[in-house]
Design a protein around this nucleic acid. Sequence first.
DNA 1: ATTATAATGTTCAAAAAATCACATTAAATA
DNA 2: TATTTAATGTGATTTTTTGAACATTATAAT
Lengths: 218, 218
Amino acid sequence: MLIKKNVKRLLLYRLCLVKFREMGFKRVYSYNLGHEAGVSAEQIRKDFSHFKITGNKKGGYDIESVLEKLNYIFRKNELQKVIIVGMGNIGRALSHYECGFTVRRQYIVAGFDIDPVKIKKTYNVPVYDMRSMDEYIRTNNIQVAIMAVPSISAQEVCTILVDAGIKGIMNFSPVLLQVPENVIVNNINLCDELEIVIYTAVNSNSINEAMIDNLTRD
Amino acid sequence: MLIKKNVKRLLLYRLCLVKFREMGFKRVYSYNLGHEAGVSAEQIRKDFSHFKITGNKKGGYDIESVLEKLNYIFRKNELQKVIIVGMGNIGRALSHYECGFTVRRQYIVAGFDIDPVKIKKTYNVPVYDMRSMDEYIRTNNIQVAIMAVPSISAQEVCTILVDAGIKGIMNFSPVLLQVPENVIVNNINLCDELEIVIYTAVNSNSINEAMIDNLTRD
DNA sequence: ATTATAATGTTCAAAAAATCACATTAAATA
DNA sequence: TATTTAATGTGATTTTTTGAACATTATAAT
């Protein structure tokens, strides 16, 4: 999990840097960025150093060149083709989520579903029959898929994806998918994420007695 | 961040326990649960111990009673009222996301938007004018909100929420919200999450030379 | 009833991550 | 040009997290 944590922070830094750039800044110091991102200045420098992103001993970091480096790291020069499996509420929402995905050169190229009502319709992207998914993945050399299917069919769909050659899955079903070592899964459990908010928000007022003593936070 | 990490694991365990229960099991051992959740058995026992969830020295953990304890910890007995601000793609998808939210007794009670087209329409929940949001929050004593508004208006909306008394925000805008100490924010950046998948999946094949040496994984 | 077994729960050790401290060096100043 | 300053980058230290080891105890077997 080391990479994931670092990578997540790096993406957070990118978000902040873009904001600074929009504000007209050309350079930032580690503590500016740290303050904005909510991490320590040392952490920033360590992370940058780790990914061989260098600054200037007096003048901090050049925003543009750090962003370029980040784009290089995240292969932003290459257009990443991504498919969505399951065009339910979440799937359809993501297919319209241009503001984020297309700006970043992640590109949703197709959706798949088993529901004949959804197939052929175009929710911003063409939606095909799931039976043709395997072929589509192979011919278009798709490596990454977003899964937003019902829990009951999640593992089955996952297996099809993996067999077709998918290497990364962003999974919205509350199911822990069984995949080979070389396939990575990022589970997004929206309920859990909301639960965390509720838990923390509610308990920050009146501590639940089940929680007791030694719970530090942040 | 200690709580959040623990809580996240606890929610993961719950997911697994529900699955085991559905499969007809009555009891689990720490290593069963660990295997399913992808964590070590010791970690399970540590986490349980930390939250005063106890098992049986020989017979492992009684699934039903652990789930009950978890429900108590997460206050599942109380119905949590949640509002959605911003009825765009994501907001609307979440308003229909019953399978998760309602089963868990989290309850989306209302949506808010500034777009007159969306107001009055009912996307599974009633949608009101954002100008009435402050009043709604106060009269209904809402503590938690989901924000799915455009980045440009995120901070403004956030401030309204906080002033109205919101204590927890699940934020889908790629913006780091400024909030007082006592308000907690859970940022869900779907682009970043997809980026992580792409990054890891693509780099697991052909390592990017920018990444170099010392990147361990998992 | 006694013994053996197999799980928990906790203490102790190792690993990882974050923070601190400082040596280094680019820029500003005199 | 020399000196001061203020930032980076990295080695050392501390803290946190994870993993291993083991003592404890409920159950099963004899």
